[in-house]
Design a protein around this nucleic acid. Structure first.
Lengths: 105, 105
DNA sequence: GTCTTTGGTAAGTATAAACTTACGGTAAGC
DNA sequence: GCTTACCGTAAGTTTATACTTACCAAAGAC
């Protein structure tokens, strides 16, 4: 549960989230990503490391380059983590409405 | 989409995530929350403001106190945001497997 | 072999943000 | 009325982190 939530911290940064969104379209190499952002290539490398540690992306060697792509498992785990709260919040909210409608508005 | 992602930044901080998780169990007042964490009450107030601006919690007055609880809409929006990437990542991954199985492992 | 391309990591800096104390404002108890 | 409890905000500090430049290693082109 706690390690699942680690992905949330990874996606908290706007640049990292933008990188993540680019990788959702298609796998890309590091330099290819760096050319699409106003930050340097080492900065992109560091962001990719955070995303990788969070289990959101996987990488593989392709000759000279290194290809990164989204990890469906990691994204799914984050989804499952949020589902838990969504269900709990919805249940608690509906219970409050039934108990006292004025309380919710 | 961008405002949905705002919630990710809000849940990026560990303390804020812990507050969020407590609120999932049941609505709580600010001081009640503060007593459960090693940070001061103003710090909790500031975290709650961030969560509120992100649309993840709602608050209401209850006499002297102020009750916070999860906002199912905001949590649901975050879910939807992640669903989009989950579906895209899964499709891209499966397409890669069909194209070249060795490429994925 | 040399030269170029690609990318990870180390070291240092600058910006952001999480936290504290101090204060003011509102509601309840008396 | 006065006092206490609850909470938000302002101001300042301290810590974290996103970023840069500099360096090194591995793989392809020649």
């Amino acid at each position: 549960m706690t390690d699942r939530a680690e992905g949330l911290a990874a996606l908290g940064d706007p640049t990292r989230r933008a990188i993540f969104e680019r990788l959702a379209d298609r796998p890309r190499a590091v330099g290819e990503l760096a050319r699409e952002f106003p930050v340097t290539r080492p900065a992109v490398s560091q962001h990719l490391k955070v995303l990788k540690d969070a289990g959101l992306v996987v990488d593989r060697r392709a000759g000279n380059r290194r290809i990164y792509q989204l990890d469906p498992d990691g994204v799914g785990a984050l989804r499952a983590y949020l589902d838990q709260f969504w269900n709990r919040a919805l249940a608690a909210f509906q219970a409050a409405v039934e108990r006292d409608p004025k309380e919710t508005q």
